[in-house]
Write a protein that binds this DNA or RNA. Structure first.
Lengths: 166, 166
DNA sequence: CTCCTCGCGTTATATTATATTGATCATCAG
DNA sequence: CTGATGATCAATATAATATAACGCGAGGAG
């Protein structure tokens, strides 16, 4: 993980976001696109006010609602994820937006991305493990619970910070 | 679930908390005990300031640090859990404190309680499903990640609110 | 053109969390 | 008993996070 942003990844994700929104009639305005770009550029999750500060450098009039509204749009459309533990946001790099955009549904099936949060470098990796998803679904069912959305955030040490072989 | 507190449960949990603290030399002061009682009495998670308001009715001098310090103590000792999605706290009713208190370790093994949050009645059920725990551990390992603590919060509908047979 | 919706700006406010400092109290050595 | 020590708690101030309320202006539908 090692806290480095991959700009090419970011570009690709922005591209996908464009197409994703176009396909659904959602308006990825310049402001929203810029916020998404800022998030994708960062290797670590960004808080709303960090984001606001960065936004201000190119967009002086920005205020808290500016960024919160953009984040609302972006999270609704699954272009970014909110990390609850950190009150922060990270770009979605799993192909999910891609994969699901075209066949028209609104992600009715349970999405269960998992976030691996490194306590040392602050980096976050997003995975989507089928085993975790099905275990969660099974456990919920056993409890008589009908799950809609799961937040799975694991804190620990990433490969690099744990000193494991790369 | 149906948003109802079970007072007997609360009493029992308070009792267990006493013993748990006594066994570990931790001081469950009157204030901490009262905060724990308030949390256990509530069927839904309580925010820090809701808690503060309730605390004030019997303890006029209470201020934010009062409740935050109590919560810090209670969460450290696993007597209450913090629900990250909600910035709120709920009492621990799983026997974990019991089970682990006596054999002296500090919960070094990975605990992976899961919280089922009903979007309708606001109730929260705590479960500890081994399958979820092991799936998470396996997924982390595959990603080269060394997990320390996992937050698993599932939003959906509880048995009662989903209209399923009881 | 007029109505309407939506994105956005702006101000103010609410909610959640931490920092700092001083007061209180139990314990125990001398 | 006295005073030192450490833990707990209180009170105030401040920071960080989030939302409410109001209005303006652009752009499409009728």
């Amino acid at each position: 993980m090692a806290a480095e942003a991959d700009a090419r990844d970011g570009e690709a994700a922005l591209e996908r976001a464009e197409q994703h929104c176009a396909a659904r009639g959602a308006k990825l305005t310049a402001l929203r696109r810029q916020v998404l770009g800022l998030i994708l550029d960062s290797p670590v999750p960004l808080g709303a006010y960090t984001l606001l500060d960065r936004l201000k450098t190119t967009h002086p009039g920005a205020a808290p609602p500016t960024v919160y509204r953009a984040l609302e749009f972006l999270t609704e459309h699954r272009l970014v994820h909110r990390i609850e533990r950190l009150n922060a946001f990270i770009g979605c790099r799993v192909g999910c937006s891609d994969a699901c955009a075209d066949h028209g549904h609104e992600h009715d099936h349970a999405h269960a991305a998992q976030f691996l949060i490194c306590g040392s470098c602050g980096g976050v990796e997003e995975i989507e493990d089928a085993g975790v998803g099905s275990a969660l679904a099974a456990a919920s069912r056993r409890a008589g619970f009908r799950p809609a959305h799961a937040t799975v955030e694991v804190e620990g040490l990433c490969r690099g910070c744990a000193g494991l072989p790369g």
